[in-house]
Nucleic acid binder design. Structure first.
Lengths: 226, 226
DNA sequence: GTCTATAGGCTGATAGAC
DNA sequence: GTCTATCAGCCTATAGAC
């Protein structure tokens, strides 16, 4: 029974060069870290899921922590890029803000379903070991959102709200929702409740409307499109 | 140098009966778990901070996990109680919602500064080991907020918003803010940025106003007090 | 009730064969 | 580049003296 167990990695004739190993480790790490957090994942689990040996983590990334940082950093960069592109749009601030919410929602649900969980977990750990390079990414998102809100206030489309507080409430409600969505689904399933957890698209629309009404200057509730 | 080190516990002539030990462990655990998460805290650290021996955790609580649950459960119960009391108020829904936000803000800042962090961390861990008894507490908060919002919609004070989505956005923006506040303070201090992190009171007011405007039925933006 | 001492398990990292 | 084998370190929990 113990003879000639076919190597896991050979299924589907997976490429097995150095780059393939790196990618397999990144993919496995992304999923596991998001689900269980940095300390909740032994390197052996990552190696097993990737179909390679533990030692490869040290060889390719120089340790568990560096693998983790590579994952978080790569994902974060994508989000920052798409948010910053939007912030440069010359369209009316309320429209830009509405689209920013939609874009963030789509990005995290479709391309990076674990992103919010990972970032939130990292922040909750006190940012004790968050490196410099990583920490200015949220700052760039902050700047982008702040800029849009400040412009809306300046142009009279928004009430004179505080852009920083507005940013926090916007990002907070989105990040919270996406980071806790799996939990809600799980609880409902475990208790066999016939209700289904709120849909991401519905929530995005809810936040769009809440901010449109909540920020609008008096009498400007109805959006005026170009 | 190793002779007669005065026992830590004797400072301030602390009471050292069984109840005192229990309380010391609860207090130490609350702070440490909130700061570093369940897995980030060795029992030895809790024992040291409490000024007692490791073995006491097992004697009094039956293990690390049960100590943790005792802490989370006790804190959570207090919050649920105060929220439910408010939900029964017969006053206009917008006023009740505004006060609910204020009460939650005061409770978590003054009495339970680590509460949001702990709950969020627990949820992010997938609720894998969240016991039944604990899980219906968020459900009770959900019911309370949902009830207030649904009444406001029924009475025509609010737009026809979805009460569940509204609850999520409200709780999300608050929990996110309080759970990440220490992180912001820390980052600003570490980078020696002369700005100070947004004040909790200011944020509470921001959310109150955002929801007042964001939920108000058209033409009912201005609050009408009794 | 509280302590010391220790058992027993799991972790991240590395040395060295291939 | 990739593996096997192994290390030292840390963790939780418990046995047993006081």
């Amino acid at each position: 029974m113990t003879v000639s167990v076919p190597p896991i990695r050979s299924r589907r004739a997976r490429r097995r060069d150095a780059a393939g190993t790196r990618e397999a480790l990144l993919a496995a790490g992304t999923e596991l870290f998001a689900e269980r957090g940095y300390e909740g994942v032994p390197v052996s689990a990552i190696a097993q899921k990737a179909g390679v040996n533990k030692a490869m983590i040290n060889y390719h990334f120089g340790g568990k922590r560096k693998l983790y940082l590579a994952i978080v950093s790569a994902t974060f960069s994508e989000i920052v890029t798409s948010v910053e592109r939007l912030a440069d749009s010359p369209r009316p601030a309320p429209d830009v803000l509405r689209e920013l919410i939609a874009v963030v929602g789509e990005t995290v649900t479709q391309h990076h379903p674990h992103f919010c969980t990972m970032m939130l977990r990292e922040v909750l750990s006190g940012g004790k070991h968050v490196e410099r390079e990583l920490i200015d990414k949220p700052v760039r998102i902050l700047s982008a959102v702040q800029g849009i809100v400040a412009r809306g206030v300046r142009e009279g489309a928004f009430r004179p709200v505080d852009p920083l507080l507005t940013h926090l409430s916007l990002v907070g409600s989105l990040v919270f929702f996406f980071a806790t969505q799996r939990f809600r689904e799980r609880v409902l399933a475990d208790r066999r409740i016939a209700m289904k957890a709120p849909d991401a698209a519905a929530y995005v629309k809810h936040i769009q409307d809440l901010l449109a009404h909540g920020l609008a200057a008096h009498g400007a509730s109805r959006r005026r499109r170009a």
